[in-house]
């Protein structure tokens, strides 16, 4: 009898201890913190992983020793090369008015007025200058995404002038403002002295020293590309504007007085 009571008592103690143990470890488990969650670890995707040749399903620690961790089905011995676009300097370029209009409209949608530094059309996170330069120094294209080329020399502190989109935690905050500001629109085209003459440069050259950033070189804006990108000395033929460049401000062009011709 005594023995039986002892047995029952001991089993109770063990049961309580076991429950206590599980309650104990259950209590301190941290909740998901939300800092590093990404769509990839979502439950839905986890289910999908079993059918996906590119994903390896996570296993419990106990199963690690037996789990196959080798290459997936789609693993290949050599890395696939990303398709790179070859740029043909001498390819014939026929900019169309429609493309030019479309490009101008996209350009304008990213500026408060013509001449304003464009906004950054994507969110950035603790971005250093190096991060910006990695895509925007020479420009790049990936799929339908295009990183434009810097039109000016290397300058530090990119976000000094270029306003980004809202930081990730505040992307859903309504940031609309009501304003009646109307910015200066972009010029449609440079003026030509006569049909066939090279057009003048209709904008300031300040901060736009690299003409090919917009006008060619494989990263230019459709419809605004130069038809002759192999010619590298742009201002040889296209005249800048002294007043737009804040170079020499003069109301009238100074000239010598007219000839004095004696009247009869």
């Amino acid at each position: 009898m005594n023995k039986r009571i002892t047995t029952i008592f001991l089993s109770l103690v063990i049961a309580v201890a076991a429950i206590g143990y599980f309650v104990g470890i259950g209590d301190g488990v941290p909740l998901p913190d939300g800092f590093h969650d990404s769509p990839l670890v979502d439950h839905e995707l986890k289910h999908a992983a079993s059918g996906d040749a590119k994903l390896i399903e996570a296993v419990s620690y106990a199963e690690i020793a037996d789990a196959e961790m080798g290459p997936t089905e789609s693993w290949q011995l050599t890395a696939k090369t990303l398709p790179t676009q070859t740029y043909d300097l001498f390819a014939e370029i026929k900019p169309s008015e429609e493309e030019k209009l479309a490009s101008s409209q996209t350009r304008s949608s990213r500026r408060a007025y013509n001449g304003a530094p464009p906004i950054i059309p994507h969110a950035i996170e603790n971005t250093t200058d190096a991060a910006c330069y990695s895509c925007h120094s020479n420009g790049m294209k990936m799929g339908s995404l295009k990183a434009s080329v810097m039109s000016h020399q290397f300058l530090a502190n990119c976000t000094q002038c270029h306003a980004p989109m809202a930081p990730p935690p505040f992307q859903n905050v309504d940031a609309r403002v009501s304003t009646t500001f109307v910015g200066l629109p972009a010029p449609k085209a440079g003026k030509r002295a006569f049909p066939g003459a090279p057009p003048t440069i209709p904008h300031s050259q300040w901060m736009r020293e690299n003409c090919l950033a917009c006008h060619g070189g494989g990263n230019g804006w459709a419809g605004m590309e130069s038809t002759h990108p192999w010619r590298s000395n742009c201002t040889q033929c296209h005249a800048p504007s002294a007043s737009l460049d804040q170079a020499i401000v003069s109301e009238t062009i100074p000239m010598l007085p007219p000839l004095e011709v004696a009247k009869e």
Binding site: Q105, R111, V177
Partner: peptide, 8 residues
């Protein structure tokens, strides 16, 4: 936000 700039 909305475009601030009517284009061309």
């Amino acid at each position: 936000a909305d475009f601030s700039l009517p284009v061309l």
